[in-house]
Nucleic acid binder design. Structure first.
Length: 594
RNA sequence: GCACUCUUAGCUCAGCUGGAUAGAGCAUCGGUUUGCGGUACCGAAGGCCACAGGUUCGAAUCCUGUAGAGUGUACCA
């Protein structure tokens, strides 16, 4: 994706492509839970009960309605009153002539709420023709920096970069869709002693190096081999590190060339993965080099530094280990660079929130980093700094994901394998041309890899299993893509224009419609907690409800009257659009036929 | 040693501010077919939520301890 395409991508996430005529008053129908909360709060006040904020939750069972409020018991305790009595008073003040049709006290003092079916019908009608599916943007947009992927230029991207790249990209897409201004930052590792060796070797291989750099992994191994075997080469490598840091033109040229090629490899992976990172988003480690001395000075001015064993450290309260910002030999560390990056992001980019999508092993580093950044004033007190951590990728037997001989798995190889597995999985009912099969397998295979990762809680380790991720059964991308294709099939068969009103009459229709309405609440929750698996869980539930609806509710059969048919077609269209939008946020494509 | 994270059905995982009888999928067993795409749907069975205490009207969820697993622990990033 080119920079201009990327820009268009983000803008499209916010823009409403085909404005609904209902947009003017759509806020009346938006943010389901907030509206219910506010109705409940009013009722509490009218019943003379003090409450700060109330939060309803989804009903735990269908018998308990659509939503339930569990907070009465706690309030009753504060007031030393009987919870059922209070609940009854509150229920008496809940209007049941609009959004809510029924409110009941249950058990020790739960309040169960049923939404009015007509209200649901009208609300879902609002989604028709709205490219945003009535998902509102946030009231006050933030500037959000999402720091993700961040590969090291010395080596080829491997599976260790997969999770950061796709979780980060999803969050960036999500924040943008919800109206925040997103600044993607690819903090690539392009500096350090190994680059002396690499450029010295590049020089030997011929400066252009385009041939020898085609396999970075091999290039690194070869260079390391030379380094270990030849003392003269090793000396030259060390000399080149110094020269590079000193701004030597020849070495810088070699280095530029090397980084350019290496970044090119990354872009190949991003393109195949459908990750929206461009060169515009690259802000390399080396770009902070000139600021590092100033960072140390600034920390010193604040009185935060202690010299310990010759190194400049910040000692943090309750922390055994210091935060090192300058080595005893005067060199700087990644801690220093990270501080410079925070300062840049807050002070120059104007970030309100910075999300670091980095694996869980670095939790300690980020805790220290954030603490020091605040103490030094690089981040404001209200700057939201968060480590969006994630667990490891494990193989089927629960061990860290490696190649058969224990090496790291190159990301590009993994993705190619995904496409091969996908071809096997989609033994199709119709014969595809080779070209078509390739296209479908790519969308299915890459989608499966991404979905498998995004569908589990990011904090836990997850088992990488081809068979499971490429199954049509269970919570997989294929199940969703199949549901989508099925919907498109109906629409193709119908051929006419879908234009009727949504009038919900049956339970499966109603359940599906309500789920469609909950898309917005779910997205805001996923964004607030930076948890992509809320999206996949929702989409799977949505698709499941659609399948049930589909089984029980004929659409195109001869004996279906036109009003019912239009109603059901509309629900199908909306379901398809929601699946497409949801998967789109995850960077996963859909297919018209499968 | 210390710190952090984790432990939910045979397996892979959900479980929002503490709430009602802890939910899915896979696998197992049993159903649905003159099917708008059956790669679907319905049902059954499967649980001491690691263990022991505590707080609470109420705990998978909060606190303490124990066991097991993983990760991190000053001059790499």
């Amino acid at each position: 994706m080119s920079p201009s395409q990327r820009k268009a991508h983000d803008e499209n996430l916010i823009k409403t492509n085909s404005p609904s005529i209902f947009n003017s008053n759509k806020s009346d129908f938006m943010k389901l839970k907030q509206q219910i909360n506010s109705i409940l709060l009013d009722a509490l006040q009218q019943a003379g009960i003090e409450a700060q904020a109330v939060q309803v939750s989804d009903a735990s069972k269908p018998e308990f309605g659509d939503y339930q409020y569990n907070g009465i018991m706690a309030l009753a305790k504060q007031q030393k009153r009987n919870p059922r009595e209070i609940a009854a008073e509150v229920v008496a003040h809940i209007p049941t002539d609009g959004m809510i049709a029924r409110a009941e006290v249950a058990g020790p003092g739960f309040i169960n709420l049923w939404l009015d079916t007509n209200w649901v019908s009208q609300s879902v009608q609002m989604l028709v023709g709205d490219a945003r599916l009535s998902v509102d943007t946030v009231d006050t947009p933030s500037k959000v920096v999402v720091d993700y992927s961040s590969p090291n230029m010395a080596k080829q991207m491997h599976v260790g970069h997969l999770r950061s790249s796709i979780i980060g990209d999803t969050l960036a897409n999500l924040f943008a869709f919800l109206g925040d201004e997103v600044i993607r930052q690819n903090h690539i590792g392009d500096w350090g002693t190994q680059f002396g060796m690499l450029i010295a070797y590049l020089e030997e291989m011929g400066e252009d190096g385009s041939g020898s750099l085609s396999d970075l992994e091999q290039f690194y191994k070869d260079a390391k081999g030379r380094f270990d075997a030849d003392a003269a080469f090793a000396d030259k490598s060390r000399e080149y590190v110094v020269k590079l840091q000193g701004g030597d033109v020849h070495c810088l040229h070699l280095w530029d060339n090397f980084i350019d090629k290496s970044l090119g490899h990354c872009e190949e992976v991003y393109s195949k993965l459908g990750v929206n990172l461009t060169r515009e988003d690259v802000r390399a480690e080396s770009s902070y080099n000139d600021e590092l001395a100033g960072i140390v000075t600034a920390l010193d001015d604040k009185g935060l530094l202690t010299l310990s064993d010759g190194a400049q450290c910040v000692f943090l309260e309750g922390d055994e280990n210091p935060f090192l910002v300058q080595k005893s030999d005067g060199g700087y560390l990644y801690a220093t660079t990270d501080l410079a990056a925070i300062r840049y992001r807050v002070q120059t980019l104007g970030a309100d929130r910075i999300s670091y999508v980095v694996d869980a092993r670095q939790a300690g580093h980020f805790r220290q980093l954030f603490s020091v950044a605040r103490q030094a004033g690089f981040a404001k007190p209200d700057t939201r700094l968060e480590h969006v951590s994630f667990g490891m990728m494990l193989d089927k037997s629960g061990r860290p994901f490696k190649t058969r001989d224990g090496g790291t798995v190159k990301l590009i190889d993994l993705l190619e394998e995904a496409v091969i597995h996908a071809k096997e999985a989609i033994t199709s009912r119709e014969a595809y041309s080779d070209e078509e099969l390739e296209r479908i397998a790519e969308i299915v295979g890459i989608g499966a890899v991404k979905y498998a990762d995004l569908s589990i809680h990011r904090d836990s380790n997850y088992i990488f299993d081809w068979d499971k991720m490429l199954s049509f059964e269970g919570n997989t991308s294929l199940y969703l893509q199949y549901a989508y294709a099925r919907i498109q099939s109906i629409l193709r068969r119908y051929e006419g224009e879908v234009s009727g009103a949504i009038i919900l009459t049956t339970d499966p229709e109603r359940a599906l419609a309500l789920k469609l309405l909950q898309f917005e609440d779910m997205l805001h929750r996923a964004a607030a907690e930076s948890l992509p698996h809320y999206i996949t869980t929702y989409l799977y539930e949505l698709a499941t409800l659609f399948m049930k609806f589909y089984e029980t509710s004929p659409i195109l059969k001869d004996d279906v009257d036109e009003v019912t048919r239009q109603n059901r077609l509309q629900l199908s269209v909306l379901t398809g659009e929601t699946i497409q939008r949801g998967l789109g946020l995850l960077g996963i494509g859909v297919l018209e036929r499968l």
